[in-house]
């Protein structure tokens, strides 16, 4: 047991394993064209949305419901520029535009705390949606746009790259002084300010950084949808989902939101296909049971079971 554990815990072994997984994923579309590409890229997308949400909201405690706004901005970037520029550039622009929007929103909303921040960001999604709608209809006399078509494997690779970038960013932010600053803002903002942290700057920049990935994933996923309009692009579902997934997985550590997003996306799709008539019912019950019996999310539950298992093992030996 011990020798196995020591090998498994060896840092280079871990890195190697990660590299193998990454390579396996990255080369998948070369020899496989089936539905799992789509399934995986959907999962990647929700992991990106959830982890980006956690980068800002998880540590600072500001619950943002603006994900759908950044996502939609990415989608619209793709719709407007998709046929004019290479897709990688479009994704980059989508990321930057979303990030700028987040920067502005962050700078505007510094006074808001708690639930007011959450609801402000939610209202923002709706405002952008209705403004876009109004603009399209009254200024351009149209509704909705066609988006350039991109092959699934390209979408897959782009999404995988965004995923890796998101995870790396989240990981290094957690490890850095910056992450500590965020943590202390979450614990006590006044105290953090007294400690000499530029609270405003840290919050706004983190918010803007987290929006990068959301915007990028919106820009690339739009190419799967072909036709978009403001109602489709700024769907509040994409604001709520990351929150649910993060809490479902448990926000204590980085792995929680990742597992939450994977499990949630997988579960939702399987229920929607296996029990289309009852899936909302089952899904609702799972949510309630989860919140009642897993206060620290899926990861918390696994951890509890694990520790219990370990104790028993310790007792046996």
């Amino acid at each position: 047991m011990n020798s196995v554990a020591s090998i498994v815990l060896n840092r280079s072994f871990q890195l190697g394993l990660l590299a193998v997984i990454l390579i396996a994923l990255a080369t998948l579309p070369l020899h496989y064209q089936g539905y799992n590409i789509v399934r995986l890229l959907n999962i990647f997308m929700f992991v990106v949305l959830t982890v980006s949400w956690v980068i800002f909201s998880g540590s600072t405690g500001y619950m943002s419901l603006a994900s759908a706004a950044f996502f939609g901005v990415g989608i619209y970037t793709s719709a407007l520029l998709g046929d004019k520029l290479p897709i990688a550039v479009v994704v980059g622009i989508g990321a930057l535009v979303s990030s700028c929007v987040a920067f502005l929103v962050g700078a505007l909303t510094l006074r808001l705390r708690g639930i007011y921040f959450a609801i402000f960001t939610f209202g923002l999604v709706e405002l952008i949606k209705h403004l876009t709608l109004w603009w399209e209809i009254n200024m351009e006399d149209r509704r909705g746009r066609l988006v350039v078509y991109v092959e699934n494997d390209i979408i897959f690779w782009v999404m995988l790259s965004i995923l890796v970038a998101t995870l790396l960013t989240a990981y290094f932010i957690r490890r850095s002084k910056w992450g500590l600053a965020l943590q202390s803002i979450g614990e006590n903002e006044e105290a953090a300010a007294h400690m000499g942290i530029n609270v405003t700057l840290v919050k706004v920049i983190t918010f803007a950084v987290s929006a990068l990935f959301v915007g990028a994933s919106g820009a690339i996923i739009a190419t799967r949808w072909t036709y978009i309009d403001p109602g489709i692009a700024f769907n509040p579902l994409y604001s709520f989902m990351p929150v649910l997934m993060a809490i479902f997985g448990g926000m204590g550590r980085l792995l929680g939101p990742v597992i939450g997003a994977i499990a949630f996306t997988y579960l939702k799709e399987e229920l929607g296909t296996e029990f289309p008539e009852l899936y909302m019912l089952i899904f609702g019950i799972i949510l309630i049971v989860a919140i009642l019996y897993m206060p620290n999310g899926l990861v918390g539950l696994i951890q509890r079971l694990w520790i219990r298992g370990f104790r028993r093992q310790d007792a046996d030996t």
Binding site: F240, L244, I247, F248, M280, L281, F283, G284, I285, I286, L287, I288, A290, I291, L292
Partner: peptide, 8 residues
């Protein structure tokens, strides 16, 4: 989250 579940 619980009210989300209730909604569904």
């Amino acid at each position: 989250i619980a009210t989300f579940g209730l909604m569904f």
